[in-house]
C-alpha cells in the first residue's frame, strides 16, 4: 500500500472514528476484557476443587514441574516471536512477518503437543476426566486454554497464507497486531495458570 493510496483511502475508505482508534482493535480489547471473566471462572472452579480428590492421584503427586516449566517457557518465547512478527508487519517486511508468524505457530504447536503428552501421562497415572473433582476441573481449565492456543495456531497459519497471497482486507499490520493481542492474552492466561495451578501445591 503506497502512502498516497493510504492517505486517499483514509479520506474515503476508512471513515474517521470518534476516538481515532481502530474499530477492530477496540473490539479485540473489549473481547479480551470479556475473556478475563471466562478464564476467571474456570480458574476459580479449579482453585475451589483442586484439593477435593475422592479418588485417584493428588495434584502434587502427578505434576511434572520440570516438564511443564519447559513448555511454559516455550509459550512465553512464542510471545517474543509474535511481537517480532508484529514489528516486522509494521515495517511492511512481509518475509520476516511470515517467518516469525510461522515460528510462533510452531512454538504454539510444541506447547499443545506438550499438553497432549502431559494429558496422556496423567491419564496413565490414573487421573481421568471423571476420576475426581480435581481431575474434572484440571482438564477443563487446561483444556480450555489448550483450545484457545489451538485456535490461535489456526489463525496464525491462516494469516501466513493470507499475507503471502496479499489477501488481507485493510491494514495488514493491524491484522497481525490483532492476532498478536489474542496470542499474548493466551500467554498471560498461562502465566497465571502456571503459578496458580502448577507451582502452588494444594
Amino acid at each position: 500500500m503506497a502512502d498516497t493510496a493510504l492517505a486517499h483511502g483514509a479520506d474515503h475508505g476508512a471513515p474517521h472514528t470518534t476516538t481515532g482508534l481502530s474499530n477492530n482493535k477496540l473490539g479485540m480489547w473489549i473481547f479480551l476484557g470479556s475473556e478475563c471473566l471466562l478464564f476467571g471462572g474456570l480458574i476459580s472452579t479449579y482453585m475451589l476443587y483442586k484439593g477435593r480428590v475422592s479418588a485417584g492421584p493428588q495434584p502434587d503427586q502427578i505434576y511434572d514441574i520440570p516438564f511443564t516449566s519447559v513448555s511454559s517457557f516455550v509459550l512465553l518465547m512464542s510471545s517474543l516471536t509474535m511481537v517480532l512478527a508484529v514489528s516486522a508487519a509494521h515495517r511492511r517486511d512481509d518475509r520476516n512477518t511470515n517467518l516469525w508468524l510461522t515460528v510462533t505457530a510452531l512454538l504454539g504447536a510444541t506447547f499443545v503437543g506438550g499438553q497432549v503428552y502431559e494429558f496422556t501421562a496423567f491419564y496413565r497415572e490414573g487421573l481421568g476426566f471423571t476420576t475426581s473433582l480435581f481431575g474434572s476441573s484440571f482438564y477443563t481449565l487446561t483444556g480450555f486454554h489448550g483450545v484457545h492456543v489451538t485456535v490461535g495456531i489456526i489463525m496464525l497459519m491462516a494469516l501466513v497464507g493470507m499475507v503471502r497471497r496479499n489477501r488481507i482486507p485493510g491494514s495488514k499490520a493491524e491484522t497481525v497486531e490483532l492476532i498478536g493481542l489474542y496470542w499474548h492474552f493466551v500467554d498471560i492466561v498461562w502465566i497465571v495458570i502456571f503459578t496458580l495451578v502448577y507451582l502452588i501445591p494444594s
Binding site: T19, L21, K25, L26, G33, S34, C36, L37, G40
Partner: peptide, 18 residues
C-alpha cells in the same frame, strides 16, 4: 488509555467477583 481501561476493567472485575 481507553484500551487499558477496557481490559483492566474486565480483569479487575473478574478478580473481585471471583
Amino acid at each position: 488509555k481507553l484500551f487499558s481501561y477496557l481490559f483492566y476493567t474486565g480483569l479487575i472485575l473478574a478478580i473481585a467477583v471471583y
